[in-house]
Each structure stands twice: as C-alpha cells, then as structure tokens.
Design a protein around this nucleic acid. Sequence first.
DNA 1: GTCTATAATACGATAGAC
DNA 2: GTCTATCGTATTATAGAC
Lengths: 215, 215
Amino acid sequence: MSAATPSNHPPLLAEAPAGADTRTRIRHAAARLFARRGYAGTGLKQVATDAAAPFGSIYHFFPGGKDALAEDMIRTTGPQFMALVLGLLEERADPVEAVVHAFDSAAEELVADSYADGCPVATMALDVADTNEPLRRAAADVFAEWLDGGTAWFSRHVARDRARDLALAMIMLTEGAFLLGRTTRDPGPLRAAGRTMGTLVQSALDATPRGPRSR
Amino acid sequence: MSAATPSNHPPLLAEAPAGADTRTRIRHAAARLFARRGYAGTGLKQVATDAAAPFGSIYHFFPGGKDALAEDMIRTTGPQFMALVLGLLEERADPVEAVVHAFDSAAEELVADSYADGCPVATMALDVADTNEPLRRAAADVFAEWLDGGTAWFSRHVARDRARDLALAMIMLTEGAFLLGRTTRDPGPLRAAGRTMGTLVQSALDATPRGPRSR
DNA sequence: GTCTATAATACGATAGAC
DNA sequence: GTCTATCGTATTATAGAC
C-alpha cells in the first residue's frame, strides 16, 4: 500500500532548479558546500561562484552573513533529511524489512554520488560544537526533531521507551555509517548498519508480545 | 583478573607534560585544536600559541606544514583512542557488561570535559573526506585498524563474521553517540549506545550456543 | 634549533556605483 | 536588486637573523 515510489529520491543537495531565483541558488550552493567541506572550509566567495550569483547578493539575502546562511542550511536540510529517511521506511510494511531497506537505499545513493553526500548536518555539527553556540543549538534542535520523529515511527510497533532507544540507535548508526562510508569509500558500513538495525527491531518486537502499542 | 584500573583514563587530548620538548608540545596542541575545531577551523598560529612554541618551529619539526601535522595527529590519536576503548572493555569480564561499562565510562568522561572531546578523528575525517585525499586515507586507515581490533576482541566470544558486524556497530554507535552527545550536550546518547550494544552482544551470544569461538 | 618578520594569498564583510 | 571594488584581517608558508 504505502510502498509507492521505489527510489525517486529527492535531490536534497542537488543544484538549484533551472530557473531558480538568486536566493534559491545561493541556498542550494551553500548547502552543498557546507555539507561537503564543513563550516570553516566553506568560503562565501565560492558559494557565490557556485550559485552563479554576485558576491554582494549573499549579504543582500542573508544580512547575518555566513552564520545566517549556515543556520538556514542546518534548519532546512535537517528536516529534509529526516523526511527522506522516513519516506524510505514507508516503502516496506514490515518494520524489520523497512530499516534494512532504508539503509540499503542509502548505501546505493552514497555510491551513486561518489561518496560525497552523507548526513548534511553531521560535518557542520562537529565543526561548530565547540566554537559557535547558535549553530550548535541549531544542530541540536535538528537532532531533537529527528529523535521525536523516529520515536513516533517506531512507536507504531513497540512500546514508547523501546521506540526511543530504537530511534536513537537508528540516528547514531546512520551517522556512524555515513562517517565510515564516506571516509573509507565503502557502502559496506551502511549495509551493516541496516542489518544491525534489523536485529534491534526484531529484538524489540520479540519483547513486545501484544499488539503494536503496549501502554 | 584483567579488571585492573577502574578509570584512570589516559589524557589523550590533554596538554603536553610539564617539561615536554617543543615537538611534543606542538603535537599535543595540534591534536586538541584539530579534534575540537576541525581541519580548516584550526590555525597554525593558534597551534603555536597553545604550544607556547615559536611559529617557525612548526615548520622546523613538520616540514610538510599543516597537512603533515594533521596526518601525524590522525595516525597517532587514532590508535590511542582504540587502546583507550579496549582498555575500558577489559575492565569487565562479561562481554555484555563490558560494552555497557565502556559506554558509561565514555559518557562520564564527556561530561567531565564539558562535552569538548569526543572521537579525535571524526571531525577531521568529515572535514577532509571530500577535499584532502591523503588525510582521507589516513582516517580510513585508522578506521580499518579499529575494525580489525574490534573484530579480534569480539571474536573471543562469537564467530568471526558476527564479531565483525559487532565491531562495526560498536564503531558506528560510538561515533554517532559522540556526535549527538557533543551537539546536544547530553551524555544520554552514549549510555543509550551502551544499552544497544549490550542487546546486540547478547543476541550474538544467544546465536552462538557452543563455546567462545565457533569455526 | 629558536625565534621574528614578512611575503603571498584568502577570508568575511562593507560601501557604493549602477 | 545587481554587481564590483575594496577594506581589514585572517590564513599558510618562507626567509633569514640570532
């Protein structure tokens, strides 16, 4: 029923659409660069170049400068990334198959884009965790939303406290798998993370003998 | 038997010893800054300042400049970090208790250092994965060593293919937990990762009815 | 070996013409 | 709103005195 689109994944970090306006082009270029090169490693000059926009336009649309652009990027790509994962989970009805499938799909995409794009907020989060409090909070808010959303999803199958731990494990395994996958240029970690999540979901299901929600 | 030292953890990213020579002071200062602020976010001038060393000494001891310093940092702190984790695992005889205890200890340390220090190579790895091939390879080598070491450790209790997946899960959960913990300023993810690893090890043990090694 | 001065370049940010 | 020129200030790296 819900297994609709097989794999027409949203671009997420793709270039801006053809006739996009300047502001949109800047946002897309910044998202790509921040995700791939980190906060300090991204220069606004290159953002303007990649966006085919004049340098001054960055400060016209984002008066807060680099920090405003970075916070906008974290708060927009964060929810998009969660929506993408939740969409993959919906492609399989069985929860064990769903998590395995989601990670397998992520593994395919990582290979497809030459190991360039993983989690759009992880690099930024580590870069700013100790140096930029507003950006750290933005990343923390994103992770908190992910945890809520993941807990809600797993709560359809297991008790809430177990669902929360499953959601946490899902986020941590995703982040760790992308870190290893991008660094070693190997989709294996993502697939292994899928197998691991399958085991964890199965264990939680086994410990939840009744119907979907126990309360 | 092996449960010797309770928690006298090595410093890892601490300042250089009192009478340390210039080269050692530079290495320690660079390790701290690279781990906390990332590759592009770390300036060699500040490395010299923190090391209480003249700026030119950096290029005297590390003719390769910033890249040489960074690669040295990755290849030295990487094995140190694995040794620290393996040491924590040795503090409990039962493998399930061992992984739970290791993550609980890591959670304590993260709080103790005000959420500053997590994995010393993760931030660097994400920063350079797409921009600096030699450093990316250095980080990949470190992760490969961790995987081998972790597989060997879990192979004492379960079959080798299961041990490898457990080691992968341990690395990924560790990285994900430090990412979430540092970003949200919460030791909860590390403790949750410990519970999750405990579940996984128990599942693997249940599937390995015979003695320690099945082959 | 230790330390300083400086070169060459890139950065974020701003001013101001159009 | 679009675009360019420029201001300070960082950066990495080097040259050279001591």
